[in-house]
């Protein structure tokens, strides 16, 4: 029964995550900790596996279609992977209370970002996976990785922010697209669609750097991880199909309230733990 519930959690996280343009982590971690009373370190480990699953399925499509700037992605991965390892090590030394409170802050920031901006999230929906072309039928920005139609700016700063995104990923079990996409788009001058696709390509690699540490530390139980990972994988692909029929704007408003409520719950849980 628990297994089927976990599958449903993954499925819901995948569908809503894809519709809202988020990785599953923002939904998986609160549900596992608040409803299933799972230790937050285990929930983070499970979430990282789910992040790899969704990133990989999206990357298959985007890499084949040449939408990912693999060179830029690889360069920034130097920052994110080092950050992810640092994040996973920090997580081992901080208490659950700190993690709950940090995650709450991130949820609040996420709700704020969703309230402020529509555009990047819509791009992320397209990047969440699935064989269909990007939402709205947008053509690939890049035809080939060796013929970029833009110039990358502020690379050192981009690398530094990638490191921070990596730390948050390893520490809190999220993909980090929330940071990487705006950094590539606004700071580095990368077109939004390319930033979204490249971020999604990177997320799996970043998550793998810390997921292996969580796995080897015994925080990834297959009985609990597999249903969530499969659910998120299938759900993310389903979410893309629903995308056209749904009013994402209404859903977003609803989830801003959900995130505010969940953040409050996690603060309460954090203080009580």
């Amino acid at each position: 029964m628990t297994t089927l519930l976990l599958l449903a959690v993954g499925l819901a996280a995948g569908v809503f995550g894809a519709l809202l343009g988020l990785g599953g982590g923002f939904l998986v971690i609160p549900v596992l900790t608040i409803l299933f009373h799972m230790p937050i370190h285990s929930a983070i480990g499970i979430s990282l596996i789910a992040v790899i699953a969704t990133s990989t399925s999206a990357a298959v499509v985007y890499v084949r279609e040449g939408r990912v700037d693999i060179r830029l992605g690889m360069l920034l991965e130097l920052g994110t992977t080092v950050g992810a390892i640092v994040g996973a090590i920090i997580a081992a030394f901080v208490s659950s209370r700190v993690l709950y409170l940090l995650f709450s802050l991130l949820l609040l920031y996420n709700a704020y970002a969703m309230y402020r901006k529509d555009e990047p999230a819509r791009g992320q929906i397209a990047a969440a996976g699935g064989p269909e072309p990007a939402a709205g039928g947008v053509k690939p920005v890049l035809k080939g990785v060796d013929t970029p139609e833009y110039e990358v700016k502020n690379l050192p700063l981009g690398l530094a922010f990638s490191g921070i995104a990596g730390i948050l990923s390893g520490l809190l079990g999220i993909g980090g697209g929330l940071i990487k996409i705006p950094v590539m788009y606004t700071l580095m001058g990368v077109p939004l669609k390319t930033a979204v696709a490249t971020s999604n390509f990177m997320i799996g690699v970043t998550a793998a750097a810390s997921a292996s540490i969580y796995y080897l530390s015994g925080n990834v139980s297959p009985v609990e991880t597999v249903p969530v990972a499969l659910g998120v994988f299938v759900g993310a692909n389903m979410g893309l199909r629903f995308n056209k029929a749904f009013s994402v704007r209404t859903l977003k408003r609803l989830f801003i309230i959900v995130f505010l409520y969940v953040a409050l719950q996690m603060i309460i849980k954090g203080i009580g733990s």
Binding site: I49, I52, A53, F201, G204, V205, Y215, P222, T225
Partner: peptide
């Protein structure tokens, strides 16, 4: 399955 999934990004790189 989990081990292969974790190693997929390694193979990607």
């Amino acid at each position: 399955g989990i081990i292969i999934l974790i190693s997929t990004p390694f193979l990607r790189v």
